[in-house]
Simulated assay, not measured.
Amino acid sequence: MKEIQYLKGDATNPKSEGNKIIIHICNDIGGWGKGFVMAISKRWKQPEKEYREWFKNGDRFILGEIQMVQVEKNIWVCNMIGQHKIMTNSNGIPPIRYEAVEKCLEKVALEALKLNAEVHMPRIGCGLAGGKWDEIDPIIEKTLVRNNIPVYVYDFE
């Protein structure tokens, strides 16, 4: 069985051959402007543009849904709605929604298998979304690694 590969570098610039899906977590209120999305927008305009359209038309723009955006011949960016709003709520609950992340990753797994693609990501959900990697890691194992999908997690240098 494969395992998660940890790399130093930029998740928007995967160095491998073949098809790649770069995944990241979005919020459910249409906000795009902080965190990893800035690196994505610097490289490609399409993911932000399509995310904003998706939010505007409201079609299945809910927790647990994904949007695949092809940005190069063999690279897709996957916008995953795994975060509720953008602030920790009054009960101290951060925006991350682990159940939604799991639903998203189940859908990503199907896309990756269809495209015969690897999955590349930063430590999703652990920045602005306020999640903990020890909660996210087992979800990645369960959804992607168990399906023998190569997974690369980048720590920015």
Score class of each variant (00 low, 15 high):
140 I>K: 03
93 I>Q: 11
66 I>H: 00
36 F>N: 02
145 V>Q: 05
116 N>S: 01
39 A>S: 13
77 V>A: 04
117 A>W: 06
43 R>E: 15
127 G>K: 08
10 D>M: 10
67 Q>T: 06
36 F>A: 03
48 E>D: 08
68 M>C: 11
138 P>C: 09
77 V>I: 15
40 I>M: 15
77 V>M: 09
54 W>Y: 01
124 I>M: 13
140 I>E: 06
57 N>F: 01
49 K>W: 14
87 M>G: 04
44 W>S: 03
32 W>H: 03
43 R>M: 13
93 I>H: 04
67 Q>L: 15
94 P>M: 02
141 E>A: 07
34 K>E: 13
19 N>E: 13
19 N>M: 10
130 G>F: 06
32 W>T: 08
91 N>W: 09
72 E>N: 11
37 V>S: 13
86 I>G: 08
26 C>G: 09
66 I>N: 03
48 E>F: 10
155 D>R: 04
28 D>A: 10
66 I>P: 02
42 K>Y: 12
41 S>Y: 00
65 E>N: 08
70 Q>C: 12
75 I>Y: 07
1 M>I: 07
124 I>G: 09
114 K>D: 15
110 L>F: 06
142 K>H: 01
61 F>L: 13
141 E>H: 05
151 V>N: 11
93 I>W: 02
121 M>T: 11
118 E>K: 07
47 P>T: 03
88 T>M: 10
54 W>Q: 02
36 F>D: 02
101 V>R: 04
139 I>Y: 06
47 P>N: 05
38 M>K: 09
59 D>P: 02
65 E>T: 09
6 Y>Q: 09
63 L>V: 12
53 E>D: 14
71 V>D: 00
87 M>W: 14
86 I>D: 12
60 R>V: 06
91 N>G: 05
21 I>G: 02
83 Q>G: 00
42 K>I: 06
156 F>P: 01
86 I>M: 13
68 M>I: 13
117 A>F: 04
63 L>H: 07
49 K>H: 10
61 F>A: 13
31 G>C: 04
35 G>M: 08
53 E>I: 12
149 I>P: 08
139 I>L: 14
143 T>L: 02
111 E>S: 09
47 P>D: 11
42 K>P: 13
14 P>Q: 06
114 K>T: 12
91 N>C: 09
75 I>V: 15
3 E>T: 06
37 V>C: 15
119 V>C: 00
91 N>A: 15
25 I>N: 08
50 E>L: 15
106 E>I: 14
99 E>L: 14
67 Q>F: 05
153 V>I: 14
34 K>S: 10
17 E>W: 00
154 Y>A: 07
89 N>V: 09
108 V>K: 00
131 G>K: 01
143 T>A: 07
26 C>S: 10
157 E>C: 05
52 R>L: 15
102 E>G: 04
31 G>E: 15
39 A>R: 04
86 I>N: 12
100 A>Y: 13
153 V>Y: 09
92 G>M: 12
114 K>H: 11
151 V>R: 09
147 N>G: 03
144 L>E: 00
17 E>K: 12
55 F>G: 08
117 A>V: 03
18 G>F: 07
6 Y>T: 03
30 G>Y: 12
111 E>T: 11
3 E>R: 11
8 K>M: 08
118 E>W: 00
104 C>R: 01
155 D>W: 02
6 Y>F: 14
